[in-house]
Design a protein around this nucleic acid. Structure first.
Lengths: 374, 374
DNA sequence: CATCGCGCTTAAAACGATTCAATAAACGGA
DNA sequence: TCCGTTTATTGAATCGTTTTAAGCGCGATG
């Protein structure tokens, strides 16, 4: 029991009375009709068109008067529809989860679905146990938010077997077994470098993402592509790469350390492209510590546009992922899957790519004479 | 439908087959026993002590072979236990929610409860509709995460009426109707000022929290108490207050603006105590913009220790709320309520206070001669 | 007059588990 | 032999809905 912090306790008793449960039968009784009719009316089922308006009114009145609330479990049991969706976060601590989660919750809410939350804590066994739980609860779909993962198709096989639509955000499985929503990382990488290049920077350092992260390769590819298209040659001595690490904040530490190393080696650069925002913040910390001013002496660009980026000083120029929108999209995808599955139709596995957007803030600036490369 | 970002679509068909549902009856049949026995064995019910070991083994084997997974809905319907807990966030965007959420999820997971998530978006009607949804789903308890709210007891009355335990985090209702978990704000306020005072600061600016937030008053009270106990007189011309605002990031803007105003009025101060971390970051932004170095010329202290605080430059000295622990505590509280309610006992409404902790980072420093007050 | 159709409503069977009272077998003791 | 107790298992009711096929009254039609 985590019970560390000293805490005091004020205490007052609360009496527990008997739970008064109003069932449909009660509504039926007080309204003078049968449960069947009540059900039909209250759900506005197809048959409701034949029900006399007077009847409807009476039933609705009775329901309101009694404060009737349908029992979701009973309903689910019969209708086989739980109206819930599993939302699995690989690590809720990652700041990039939050906006996605909002997007998911919001779209689900609009569609009258309830999200059942699970946080895998970056652990495979928790991931699997949570999936198990979601299956038992008969979620109608699953959304997985991750930017890396240990998970292979195997683990999601049970979902496929039961025709439960699955969508991943920020990560995708090889093959066409599971739908996914990702930002166009390549375009994003391109945007970042293009921005700095246009500002006149020619000595640019890069902190690549860890190999484990699916985003790393395409972002780097976008950078390379822009470089070659612009005739810019990347100085390999200015290229570093984050080690694999699970903790979301490892990007910050990594960015800090790699930048320090770069500085210790007396490498000269006027700009730095970081794998993501946390890495960029780590880099800025290292630069600041070394007395190098951002952006005056060195520009820094990040990726993601997490909440912090706008609030750090200097605020961070970054490539924004439309995170909330990605959450919305994932919900659209699984919703489509659900209706298809309901109608015993096939549905389409889709791989959506959202467009990243360059957000220019304070951390980047046109190259100046007084830059760190002198 | 939010569908803004340009996105492409790759598509492959997925065939939907018939859903193979393994029920308890199936297990009963293949194992050669009755559903009743199967239930008893698989749940390790009291009666299981009388079941022959051989029988148990056979049943468990059959269940495993068939890949039997109990249908949670059916179980819930009969046993009246949903094993789910509603988690209502007043605004998921608030960075202080994330660690709390992790704490909640984690403790719930340990106790085999599933969190059903709801995000009120700071809107009363969404709050209420979400509560409705949670009631229909028969959550066994409710946890509300908020630092302010429009909600009065009235809205939670339905929960009380049904004896569903409720706990709030970061906020509490007047009276003893609902349990709560909060940081000891007064102690926290004291810690912040004490820290700066001990560093030698005597010209200290304050940005008080908005009246609407429940945290504001006690934090200020703690500050005042320390001041008077230390014989330090607060300069009222250095005291400002954030306006009420719903958006979680309004603290940042407010901190920025109020600090700018202070500077424009040419008020001299060597340190600033901000209501919370975002406010502090806003203040730092303003100071930096005005050419005042933090912490060299002005120290800044925040409150909360949200994730950003460690990563901003300079990193933020702050008063930490044990957020994750508070999530854990809230779960303990409602768990106790649930068992009590189950056993038709009364349970205790408790008001927990966790101890804040001073986290000293880069943004504060002993007062120096070259400070901004010269 | 029988029959049909129509408009409105409902009986009753699920859904998949849990739970309790009941039963059956086995066994020892009187 | 009979009874009481313990051990092992199960039948059947139940939870609160949804849903399908059927029921009923009644005016219209042939």
């Amino acid at each position: 029991m985590p019970d560390d912090a000293g805490h005091r306790d004020g205490g007052v008793k609360r009496t527990s009375g008997k739970g008064i449960t109003v069932t449909m039968r009660d509504v039926a009784q007080t309204s003078g009709f049968s449960p069947a009719t009540v059900s039909i009316v209250l759900n506005n089922a197809p048959l409701a068109q034949y029900i006399a308006p007077a009847t409807k009114k009476k039933i609705e009145e009775a329901a309101r008067k009694l404060g009737y609330r349908p029992n979701a479990m009973a309903r689910f049991l019969r209708s086989k529809r739980t109206h819930s969706v599993g939302v699995m976060l690989i690590d809720i601590t990652d700041p990039f989860c939050t906006p996605i989660l909002r997007g998911i919750e919001n779209s689900l809410y609009q569609a009258s679905y309830a999200p059942i939350l699970a946080d895998a804590h970056n652990q495979k066994n928790r991931f699997e146990r949570a999936l198990e739980m979601l299956l038992e609860r008969h979620v109608e779909a699953l959304i997985v938010v991750a930017n890396w993962t240990f998970v292979d198709i195997h683990v999601l096989a049970d979902f496929n077997k039961r025709n439960i639509p699955v969508a991943t955000i920020g990560w995708e499985l090889p093959g066409d077994t599971v739908s996914s929503v990702m930002v166009d990382n390549e375009a994003g990488g391109r945007l970042a470098l293009e921005h700095l290049y246009k500002l006149g920077h020619r000595k640019i350092a890069f902190i690549r993402g860890p190999k484990m992260l699916i985003d790393s390769a395409p972002r780097w590819k976008g950078i390379q592509k822009f470089a070659s298209s612009a005739g810019y040659e990347i100085d390999q001595t200015l290229v570093t790469q984050l080690p694999d690490g699970l903790d979301p904040s490892s990007g910050f530490d990594g960015g800090f350390r790699l930048t320090e190393e770069l500085l210790q080696k007396r490498r000269k650069f006027t700009a730095l492209v970081a794998f993501d925002d946390l890495t960029a913040l780590g880099a800025i910390r290292a630069l600041t510590k070394a007395g190098i001013k951002v952006p005056d002496q060195c520009s820094v660009a990040g990726f993601d546009d997490v909440a912090l980026s706008a609030m750090s000083s200097p605020s961070l120029t970054t490539v924004r992922q439309p995170l909330e929108t990605m959450g919305n999209l994932a919900v659209n995808v699984i919703l489509e899957g659900i209706t298809a599955s309901q109608e015993k139709r096939d549905w389409t596995i889709s791989h959506q790519r959202t467009s990243p957007e360059l957000v220019i803030r304070e951390s980047t600036r046109a190259v100046s004479l007084s830059s760190a490369d002198d």
